[in-house]
Amino acid sequence: MLFAPDTEESLNFVVALGNTTPGSSRSGSDELATTGQLTELLVRFSYTGRIDHDEAELREVRDTRTLLRSIWDLNRDEAVEVVNRMLRDAKALPFLVRHDQLDWHMHATSPDAPLAERMRAEMGLAFADVIRMDEMDRLRICEADDCDGLVLDLSRNGSKRFCTVRCGNRMNMIAFRERKAAG
């Protein structure tokens, strides 16, 4: 295992959130366009604490999505600056909690803090682990020609190239057809 379970869960959430953009979503459209879509995403990842279910919160989460996606394109030193700013702006004071079916894990802000702020703080802690373990190369962009999906490579050998099996299959089919046409 590369990371603690709560770090992996946070990073998987960033991938799911980041892959709601038009260039990376399955539908090709923005899959975080409504408060209902945000609610569905939060339910999938068992988000707790204050959730306002309003347009202002949706806008803040969409801005957070843009910020978190940007970290995928940064080198380690650049990521440190962004992560430190995220933690500082949220006034993060990490603490251990256990709730629902989850064992002890880290939260970084009060459950009453705005949702986007809590996201930035918790993702900041996850990115801090990635940086400390010098594993920024595990954060990639999908290698499919027409996809900019986020890839979190938790494989043992670090060889994951595509955001979904669908992208991998599509690129394999293209390569097969090219080989067949050339041969």
Score class of each variant (00 low, 15 high):
residue 126 A to Q: 04
residue 117 E to N: 09
residue 181 A to H: 08
residue 22 P to N: 06
residue 43 V to T: 11
residue 72 W to R: 10
residue 66 T to Q: 13
residue 80 V to A: 08
residue 126 A to W: 00
residue 129 D to M: 09
residue 66 T to K: 13
residue 109 T to C: 10
residue 94 P to V: 04
residue 183 G to P: 03
residue 138 R to N: 07
residue 111 P to M: 12
residue 107 H to Q: 08
residue 66 T to S: 14
residue 148 D to Q: 12
residue 128 A to G: 09
residue 93 L to I: 11
residue 146 D to K: 10
residue 158 G to H: 09
residue 2 L to D: 12
residue 173 M to I: 12
residue 76 R to E: 12
residue 141 I to Q: 03
residue 20 T to G: 06
residue 87 L to C: 15
residue 81 E to P: 01
residue 106 M to Y: 05
residue 41 L to S: 11
residue 183 G to H: 12
residue 166 R to H: 14
residue 166 R to K: 15
residue 96 L to E: 12
residue 147 C to N: 06
residue 45 F to A: 05
residue 68 L to V: 14
residue 38 L to R: 03
residue 165 V to Q: 12
residue 157 N to F: 06
residue 5 P to R: 08
residue 27 S to F: 01
residue 10 S to Q: 11
residue 79 A to M: 05
residue 73 D to V: 05
residue 143 E to I: 08
residue 36 G to L: 06
residue 72 W to H: 10
residue 26 R to V: 10
residue 18 G to A: 05
residue 170 R to D: 02
residue 66 T to V: 15
residue 104 W to C: 09
residue 109 T to F: 02
residue 81 E to K: 13
residue 65 R to L: 10
residue 17 L to P: 04
residue 16 A to M: 00
residue 142 C to Q: 05
residue 59 R to V: 14
residue 93 L to P: 00
residue 29 S to D: 06
residue 112 D to L: 14
residue 12 N to R: 14
